[in-house]
């Protein structure tokens, strides 16, 4: 399976998240994102995931953090005239450098997976599918 098999072009990703620390190493919160990709035929695929976000921060020096995050939730997907609410999961890794006590900048990347399920009794004649997207983002964080 190669990049071109998806019939999608390079897209964009933006999100807002808020998390509170449950312990020294773990944080729990939520994330709202907007993802878009154009298909090779020029149609727009948009994905709006609303997820719970669990983060584990094994490396934290005060200046430098490495965080592993798991997002679980659902995503509103729209492609051409079709709409679907799909289960959504993502696993990301974020090294961050805090240039002040409160403000940090990091690079976040990982894998996001969505799926569409159509059973035998579905009135739509469509195949079920899994879609994997890999965001590479700059992450600006404010902590307090």
């Amino acid at each position: 399976m190669t990049f071109s098999d998806t019939h999608l072009k390079l897209g964009g990703f933006a999100s807002l998240s808020y998390q509170a620390y449950l312990s020294e190493y773990t944080a729990l919160g939520g994330e709202l994102a907007y993802v878009f990709n154009y298909s090779n035929s020029g149609l727009l695929l948009t994905t709006v995931p609303i997820t719970a976000k669990f983060t584990y921060v094994p490396v934290q020096t005060g200046k430098f953090d490495i965080a592993l995050s798991l997002n679980l939730g659902g995503a509103f997907i729209r492609y051409n005239e079709g709409k679907y609410f799909a289960p959504f999961a993502s696993l990301t890794l974020t090294p961050s450098f805090f240039f002040t006590e409160n403000w940090g900048l990091g690079v976040e990347t990982g894998l996001m997976v969505t799926s569409e399920f159509y059973g035998k009794n579905s009135n739509k004649n469509l195949a079920s599918a899994f879609c994997g997207l890999m965001p590479v983002t700059l992450t600006l964080s404010y902590r307090h």
Binding site: T6, G11, F13, A33, E108, G132, V136, T137, L138
Partner: peptide, 9 residues
């Protein structure tokens, strides 16, 4: 967060 999104599979 803001950035690019690569279609993987």
């Amino acid at each position: 967060r803001a950035g690019v999104d690569f279609p993987a599979f």
